[in-house]
Design a protein around this nucleic acid. Structure first.
Lengths: 248, 248
DNA sequence: CTAGCTCATAATGTATACATATTCAAGTAT
DNA sequence: ATACTTGAATATGTATACATTATGAGCTAG
């Protein structure tokens, strides 16, 4: 859509390029990232590369080395499930804020449209790969809209940061399900969570809205477990390269 | 302990200096931060200053301007109370993790020592200014130890980030109480929360541990309200300069 | 043969020069 | 008189040169 070549700043270009390299596994966890090497692969000079490295550290993908420089972070399975639970807890808080503080029908409308669009998607049986892809987009949109309902800039900011880790994002493991036989059921259950949280917010049931969003995230944790057990379709997972295998 | 002048990197020096300027009000909210001016006041050159600015943005004290550069962020009273509630929610999650996953007596020991030290402090009546200052240190230590009990690196990281905002940190409003007549009661109640959360973790009562930490944070919210009503001792507050006054 | 030290290499941290974009002010035209 | 345009000044974004520190290899001594 946008010309990546010249419309973006060198810093952003370097950040995107490095993130790709990390998530694709070109840069392996624990390995020190050479600035010089990054300069060669990204095309930017050292200054924007260093800026990008700092931002990726804040993002959680990199870890600062005490003696200087950065290395790619490694994540255990528990790290990932904790990150998902964390995200769910924050989304739960957002849902509770929305319920307690009240939301107008007008604000709820885009959420309901999103809900209806997903309903239509799930009506088709069996669910095609394209439908999965559309689901990822719509699901991300639903979660973003829900977060905004909290009308709390600090909370929105924290949720965005918690979702920055690719495996912690709301749609992190949806694609991994696409090959699973349980796929359709899981999506249907998730969609019901969506429906319930809207209902709870409408009725100003804060505790219910919060609880359902927490449980919703635990669906993602279950997907993670499923995906890691059936290791056949792990290539659909983002950032697989970052997952620590039990070697120690 | 460490010589601030030459043992720290220029980047860290610049970051500390700029943070001081922001929190002290030398740089006012909404105002664009001039790199050149920052170079003069901090003594570092533009490169480390820019690094510091990026880090302060991630920290939440600065906001990126679309056309380039950074400005000091302004916070409403609600932003602050939401940030505190957010921190409490995360600490609640940490306490629940600790309770559910189990903590050995050995791990709990430093927490109990901290608890006892605070008890001793609160035994003195009336509480001196020095005692308040010691309380701030011990309280911060207690919260840090509790967070670590979760044994969840992603969660610890997020709590640290949520506590980076000075007014959201566990001890953010303690000093503001020092002049309040209700001061002693508030500290006693807070200390009881500490006692209860340890008891809950020991007995593996996850829900109770979580709930009490949330309520504990709400004590800070109440302190915030109190402090903002009696505006006489607002000078003890950090980052008062960042609070948006109701002008719009 | 192993452990420790020294030196060379190469990395990061810093400073500054240069290019580009934005912003503000002044002047002109309507 | 006001609005728009143009230009200059100053800001940020980028590149690179320099300094300092970490790291690793090779040699020597025990």
């Amino acid at each position: 859509m946008a010309e990546v070549d010249r419309s973006l700043s060198q810093t952003v270009k370097a950040q995107l390029a490095l993130r790709d390299q990390i998530l694709s596994g070109s840069l392996r966890p624990g390995e020190r990232i050479s600035e010089l090497q990054a300069v060669e692969t990204t095309g930017a000079s050292r200054t924007p590369v260093r800026m990008a490295l700092v931002r990726l550290e804040e993002e959680g993908l990199l870890e600062a080395i005490p003696s200087g420089g950065f290395m790619v972070k490694a994540f255990s399975e528990r790290d990932i499930s904790d990150s998902i639970e964390l995200r769910g807890t924050l989304e739960g808080l957002a849902a509770r804020f929305a319920a307690e503080r009240g939301v107008s029908a007008r604000e709820l409308e885009p959420l309901k449209e999103c809900l209806a669009a997903i309903d239509e998607l799930l009506g088709q049986v069996p669910i095609s790969i394209e439908a999965f892809s559309s689901y990822v987009t719509l699901n991300a949109r639903f979660h973003a809209l829900l977060t905004e309902l909290s009308r709390s800039p600090p909370l929105i900011r924290q949720i965005d940061r918690a979702s920055a880790l690719p495996f912690a994002s709301p749609s992190g493991f949806v694609m991994a399900q696409s090959a699973l036989p349980e796929a359709q059921q899981i999506l249907i259950i998730g969609q019901d969570h969506h429906r319930v949280v809207i209902d709870a917010i409408e009725n100003r049931e804060g505790a219910r809205a919060e609880a359902i969003m927490r449980e919703h995230a635990r669906l993602a944790v279950r997907n993670l477990r499923l995906a890691l057990r059936n290791r056949t379709h792990l290539d659909l997972l983002p950032a697989l390269a970052l997952i620590k295998t039990a070697t120690d």
